[in-house]
């Protein structure tokens, strides 16, 4: 259904970098982007949960998106950002290597995920956008940030 609606429309996508790859998420889901600030670790949580941080007086969880997606983890740089996603479970911060731009992508430029994709769980990917020769992997954030069954600690 969503794809039909998108056929002739422009989707606004926030583009960010993880390692050497470009990823994107719908702007409706990504609420804001801010600098990397201090994150307090919360014990007894999965490794990809970096901890909690203070977003203007609210305590929000922060996820290391690289770790979540099973990518190689690297130390933060000056460009590292926290992108805040608005989900049903509340706001969740995601650590990304850098935020590039906001792009308007015509629906026709978005390919559905191919069964060939092995690196990422195809479940997490909404599609691949081709813009000016660059490939942007569109993440289905609600799924990416869904918590699996808690392991009993």
């Amino acid at each position: 259904m969503a794809q039909q609606q998108q056929r002739d429309t422009l989707t606004q996508i926030v583009v960010f970098q993880l390692g050497h790859e470009l990823y994107g998420a719908e702007i409706a889901v990504v609420r804001e982007v801010g600098p990397l600030q201090r994150v307090t670790r919360v014990p007894r949580t999965p490794r990809y949960v970096e901890g909690v941080t203070n977003l203007r007086g609210r305590v929000i969880p922060v996820v290391d998106l690289r770790r979540r997606l099973g990518l190689e983890v690297s130390a933060p740089t000056k460009a590292t950002r926290i992108a805040v996603a608005e989900l049903e479970a509340g706001q969740v911060g995601m650590i990304v290597d850098s935020v590039q731009e906001v792009l308007r992508v015509p629906a026709s430029a978005i390919e559905p995920p191919s069964p060939m994709m092995s690196k990422l769980d195809a479940d997490y990917v909404q599609g691949i956008a081709k813009v000016d020769g660059r490939l942007i992997i569109l993440l289905d954030l609600p799924r990416v940030l869904q918590r699996e069954e808690r392991k009993v600690v």
Partner: peptide
């Protein structure tokens, strides 16, 4: 402040708070 549903219930922890310097404490 609650930890929220994303983090959920963590045994041994009842919530978080924001300290004077803006950092979060458990």
């Amino acid at each position: 402040k609650p930890l929220g549903t994303f983090i959920g219930d963590v045994p041994g922890i009842s919530g978080a708070t924001i300290m004077g310097d803006g950092d979060v404490a458990i």
